Amino acid sequence: MLAHAPIHCVFKSVLIVDDHPLFCDALSMTLQSVANIGEIHTADRLDRAIEMLEGGLEPDAIMLDLNMPGVQGLEAVRKLIGLAKAPVIVVSSMTEDCLISQVIHSGAAGYVPKHSQRDVFRNAFKALQNGETFLPEGCVLLEPDEDSVRNFEAQRLATLTKQQTRILELICQGKLNKQIAFDLSIAETTVKAHVSAIIRKLGVQSRTQAVLMAKRAPEINRL
């Protein structure tokens, strides 16, 4: 764990920024149980969270899911840190060391994988109260550099199937779903399903972000 300025407060209220109602409910119950947090606020999108903070909400901590509408990766972390006088803890299903390192170097106070048991959330809040930055067990914090970002993106791109990779190549060429369906002799609904899977696997929020990531990859650029 990394040391930072101690947080001299008892966590009484938390703002959860996540667009999955069931996860918000489960996380709320977990925080009430393991950290005795009685006041839970939720926002299902980033701009709503910003409205709440600008409207006077002062939570003791913020828990943010990176993979949700309106969240532009690390920019969301920086934006919330700038607005709130509270530590930001990222809660995400993505657990690559490179991503966690980027999040921490962007100023987040901790990173908790979404699949974590209750004790992990308890330990995260204990770490913050002790002036430590919380990292998942086994995480290796990497120094921020361009190569680590490229490696992370390459790992995400490698999770695509051959068909998804081909569709992403065609998207990079500026082709629409109807054109892609014609080129590959598949239904347009099948293309849409593949595009949704591509966006989910890459951890981005739009076709445009997927294209930007793909164009940074040498394998795509050579085709």
Rank of each mutant, 00 (worst) to 15 (best):
Arg48Val: 11
Met29Cys: 12
Leu223Lys: 15
Gly56Gln: 01
Glu54His: 06
Ala214Cys: 04
Cys98Leu: 10
His8Ile: 14
Lys114Pro: 06
Lys215Tyr: 05
Gln179Glu: 15
Ala109Leu: 06
Pro59Ala: 04
Ile37Leu: 07
Met52Ser: 06
Ala26Asp: 12
Gln32Ala: 14
Gln129Thr: 10
Thr95Trp: 05
Ala217Asn: 12
Ala193His: 11
Ile167Asn: 02
Ala5Lys: 15
Val140Gln: 12
Gln163Phe: 14
Pro69Ser: 09
Ala76Thr: 02
Leu83Asp: 01
Phe152Lys: 10
Gly138Trp: 06
Gly107Val: 06
Val149Leu: 13
Gly110Arg: 02
Gln173Arg: 13
Val90Ala: 00
Gln32Arg: 15
Glu169His: 13
Pro6Thr: 11
Asp119Ser: 12
Gln72Phe: 06
Ser101Ala: 07
Val71Thr: 11
Leu2His: 07
Asp44Pro: 06
Ala76Asp: 00
Glu219Asn: 09
Leu2Asn: 08
Pro136Tyr: 08
Leu176Asp: 13
Thr165Val: 12
Ala3Cys: 09
Phe125Ser: 00
Glu219Gly: 06
Asp97Val: 05
Glu146Val: 11
Arg222Glu: 10
Pro218Asp: 09
Ser33Gln: 14
Leu128Cys: 01
Phe121Asp: 00
Asp119Pro: 03
Val90Tyr: 00
Ala35Leu: 07
Phe125Asn: 00
Gly55Asn: 07
Gly138Asn: 08
Leu141Asn: 03
Ser148Met: 14
Cys9Ile: 15
Ala43Gly: 04
Ile199Trp: 07
Leu31His: 09
Val140Ile: 13
Glu146Lys: 11
Ile62Thr: 01
Val195Ser: 01
Asp18Gly: 02
Val14Gln: 04
Gly56Ala: 03
Ala108Trp: 01
Gln129Gly: 12
Asn151Ala: 13
Met68Asn: 05
Lys192Ala: 15
Arg118Thr: 14
Pro144Arg: 02
Gly138Lys: 07
Thr189Asn: 11
Gln72His: 12
Gly73Lys: 02
Gln102Pro: 07
Asp60Phe: 01
Arg207Ala: 09
Phe125Met: 02
Asn221Trp: 12
Thr42His: 06
Ala5Met: 14
Leu22Arg: 13
Pro113Gln: 09
Met52Val: 06
Val112Gly: 03
Pro59Tyr: 00
Lys85Glu: 09
Asp18Leu: 02
Ala5Arg: 15
His194Asp: 08
Cys172Tyr: 03
Glu51Lys: 05
Pro144Asp: 01
Arg118Asp: 15
Asp60Asn: 06
Ala210Tyr: 00
Asp65Phe: 04
Phe23Arg: 05
Ala127Leu: 02
Leu31Gln: 08
Ala86Asn: 00
Leu80Met: 04
Arg48Cys: 08
